[in-house]
Design a protein around this nucleic acid. Structure first.
Lengths: 256, 256
DNA sequence: ACTCGACAAAGGTACGGACATATACTGGAC
DNA sequence: GTCCAGTATATGTCCGTACCTTTGTCGAGT
């Protein structure tokens, strides 16, 4: 690595963002671009390459480890986990990422994209009950098989650009960031089991006697809730799985 | 605090367990015993009290933070989260802990406690199909209302002491640790939605048309699987909830 | 060919220091 | 009494160092 292109100044020490944060993002970027295919660099290598202390490197790696992007243990070098979800955007995001990583083609049928009032959704967004919200209703298909029915109510101030967007092939969040620069920073999810109604069974082509998972989700931009979303997922094909280890964070994945 | 009872030698520097681990456990113990009721101590206070470096204190606090036991932010002192689950033992443990913290009385009806073979469970435990496993079947009640049907298959070598134990009032893990010294260190869980069969509906006193959550769980002692467990939980009253924040770990709770 | 010990490499633990920055508190000016 | 500036305090960030433990490898000895 010492053949000329040393001193990669990708880190800005004057920025408000912490160094470890920049380092983590840069490693993530390189990882998603297919870097480190052979071997994930050791801590000391990163110390030299980015010219930061080992402490900072470890802080960045710790986050990657917590997010399940890499695994590391004593005596061995860290290894990248291939299909890991880089950002924690909730279980639904994990599901679609999981499908994508398996090469399953996904698309959506847009059932509605308009403005309408909804007292409950407005309440979740901290808006007056009569506020006109941006409403998006879709059925998500994987390999032409319906897997999820998704209804989203967005803050009208931020969601309007999405009404004209093509949501048939790209994800809502990718499109939202592109058209309005909105990128969620946190949120809350609630996952429960329900028996779908006949109408819901039709939408998802579910056989009788099969349960579904209902995911209720509030997405926030900082402290401000900007998205309320209810998703109904086929319970037969998908389940949520978690691994835990004493002293480690609880990590949630979605499995087929 | 400097009035005599200084130098609390609760930490053993010669032990194999890391210092931060001992510190975390001790703080957890004191927290569960009702300590720090007024205020959670600051980092520097802990440095003095336990005579360790700030780095070690921060490592211990980090884990508590990751587990949701405390929350801390710049400029403010850390605060203990009252109803937090101390150890990550999976969502079912969270559920029972949640109920307990609300003062809801819990007990179990033991339906079976014997030895029997089960090819699937044996496979999960990495044992030959014909192995006689310790089998425990219970219905968990909260305020005399059934909330979960629990079946557990245990490694016969470690589970046998539990056959004679009273599982009607204490949790399986508490009892397991007391009678056999077994304390799980990790595991895997899978959560899915199902429509309960008529027999299952009877057991849980579920009305028609209500779904249930099925939690499949493998508990490990180090690398060795010692417990396979299938729990059916009423889906109406309970759901799993998660919060996320960019850069933070995904934290799972159980809500009513 | 196999075993085993020495060695190097990597991450884990633990110590030390310094400064940055957000928050709470306090006291004085008005 | 209210507001604001200053100060104290808390956690966050970042640097340096040292040693331990585990793992993988390589080579000498059998």
């Amino acid at each position: 690595m010492q053949h000329g292109l040393t001193a990669t100044p990708r880190l800005d020490r004057a920025a408000r963002e912490p160094l470890w944060c920049q380092l983590r993002d840069d490693l993530l970027r390189r990882l998603e671009a297919g870097g480190f295919a052979e071997r994930f660099p050791g801590e000391m290598e990163l110390v030299e390459e980015y010219a930061v202390s080992r402490h900072t490197v470890r802080e960045a790696l710790r986050r990657l480890r917590d997010d399940g992007v890499i695994v590391s243990s004593r005596g061995r070098s860290s290894v990248a986990r291939p299909g890991a979800v880089s950002q924690q955007l909730g279980v639904m995001y994990s599901l679609f990422h999981e499908l994508e990583s398996r090469g399953i083609e996904q698309r959506s049928t847009v059932l509605a994209a308009d403005r309408r009032t909804d007292p409950e959704a407005a309440a979740r967004l901290g808006l007056p009950p009569g506020t006109e919200l941006v409403y998006l209703e879709r059925v998500r298909l994987a390999d032409d098989e319906p897997i999820a029915w998704d209804r989203a109510w967005l803050d009208p101030e931020l969601g309007t650009p999405l009404l004209g967007a093509d949501l048939g092939h790209t994800g809502l969040y990718d499109e939202w960031q592109r058209s309005a620069g909105v990128r969620l920073t946190g949120g809350r999810e609630r996952i429960g089991a329900v028996v779908p109604s006949p109408a819901e069974r039709r939408l998802l082509a579910l056989p009788r006697g099969e349960a579904a998972m209902r995911v209720e989700r509030t997405g926030c931009l900082g402290e401000r809730p900007v998205e309320f979303r209810v998703t109904l997922v086929r319970g037969s094909r998908f389940s949520f799985s978690a691994e835990w280890e004493s002293g480690r964070a609880y990590h949630v994945d979605v499995t087929d």
